[in-house]
Simulated scan of single mutants.
Amino acid sequence: MPKVEIYTQPGCPYCVRAVRLLQSKGVTFEEITALHGTEARSTAISRSGGHMTMPQLFVDGKFIGGCDDMMALERGGKLDALLGVG
């Protein structure tokens, strides 16, 4: 199974949607809370190449994108293979 990490911000509806999608797939993942002004937020921005919005999904250290990107992969039938499920 690939290592899945997702940076989220409390109260963010896109973050909730992305986490629910991962949960529905039975994926083991690490959720990292990345509030504004925290080291976790700075790390997420740096790792993603400057992307400022949350959530931010990484699979095996590679930046995949945010919620819209995840949903596009899901609609295209590519997310399961990326996550190593199904």
Rank of each mutant, 00 (worst) to 15 (best):
T28E: 12
A44R: 13
A18E: 03
S42P: 00
D68M: 10
D68W: 06
D60F: 10
L79I: 01
G49I: 06
G77S: 08
V59E: 07
A34C: 08
G61C: 04
V85Y: 02
P55T: 04
Y7Q: 06
M52W: 07
G11F: 13
E31A: 13
D60C: 05
S48C: 07
D60G: 09
V85F: 01
K3N: 11
G61S: 11
M71T: 09
F29W: 06
A40K: 15
P13T: 12
R20I: 00
V16M: 14
K62V: 14
P10H: 06
E30V: 05
C67S: 06
G11W: 12
R47G: 04
V4N: 10
Q23C: 01
M1W: 07
C12D: 12
Q56V: 05
L35Y: 08
Q9R: 15
L22F: 08
F29D: 09
V27H: 09
A81H: 12
V27F: 13
V85G: 03
M71E: 11
I6S: 11
L79H: 03
L82P: 00
L82A: 08
G77Q: 05
G77E: 03
C15D: 04
G26V: 05
I64G: 03
I6H: 06
K62F: 02
G77Y: 09
G84E: 02
T43R: 15
A44Y: 04
G77W: 09
V16C: 09
G49K: 09
P2W: 08
T28D: 06
T38D: 09
G86F: 02
L82V: 02
L57E: 01
T28N: 10
G50F: 03
E31T: 01
G50K: 11
G61P: 05
L79W: 03
G65A: 14
G86Q: 04
F29L: 13
A34R: 07
D68Y: 07
I45Q: 14
G26E: 07
G65M: 08
V4S: 12
H51N: 15
I32M: 11
G26F: 03
T38N: 07
G61L: 12
C15A: 15
G84Y: 08
A72H: 13
G49T: 00
R41M: 14
D69E: 12
V27S: 12
G84W: 09
G49P: 02
R20N: 14
T38L: 12
R41P: 00
G86E: 01
Q23A: 04
T28P: 04
K25Y: 09
S48N: 11
T38C: 13
E5Y: 08
E39W: 04
L57W: 03
D60V: 04
L83G: 02
M1R: 10
T33N: 10
Q56M: 15
M54E: 11
G26P: 01
I64L: 09
V59I: 13
G50A: 05
D68G: 06
A81L: 11
H51F: 14
A81I: 05
A34S: 13
C67R: 10
L35R: 15
E39Q: 14
G76T: 00
K25P: 07
I32S: 12
A72F: 01
C15R: 06
P13M: 12
C12I: 04
D80L: 02
S24W: 01
Y14K: 14
T43L: 14
T43A: 14
P10L: 09
M71A: 10
F29E: 01
G77I: 07
Q23K: 15
V19F: 01
T8M: 05
S46Q: 14
I64M: 13
G66R: 11
